[in-house]
Amino acid sequence: MSARFLAFNAALLTFVLSQGAPAMASESVWSGLVMANNVPEPTPIPAELNSLEATLKKLFGYNQFQVIGESRKTLKTGEEDWLATSKYFSLHVDSKAAKRSSYVLTLQLFQEQKLLLETKTKLSKSSPLVIKGPQVGDGQLVLLVVIE
């Protein structure tokens, strides 16, 4: 009985401690600058956006989504920063580890040197973040951040 009791308490302690521990930094975050527009013959959606294709089309009403800048960062400590860039835009991401497989990210969208948008988010695994950016020509700049 005492062995089982000790095992039960050990499991309980592990559960309690695991809830308070920061997320394990073994995940990678994909950040992308995506240009959405309508064309007669759309190119296939990039692999990173496959699971979001229907949602993106429904949200923005465009039939083509092309990645114009991206970055894939493997988080080791959970407290890192990186940059996804295109010719004119850059998305700066600064991460802080949070609890339960999530990260607090500070995102800054620059048009060249000009800060267009800044946001702080708590990014959860399996819950992508989609940001509607500025209108570009006849299309739309969309920012995506996904924990893979």
Binding site: S127, P134, G137
Partner: peptide
Amino acid sequence: NRVTVLWVDGLQSLPS
């Protein structure tokens, strides 16, 4: 897809 959307309207439009 459990997507969270930050919808920003009114940003300055840019050329193509």
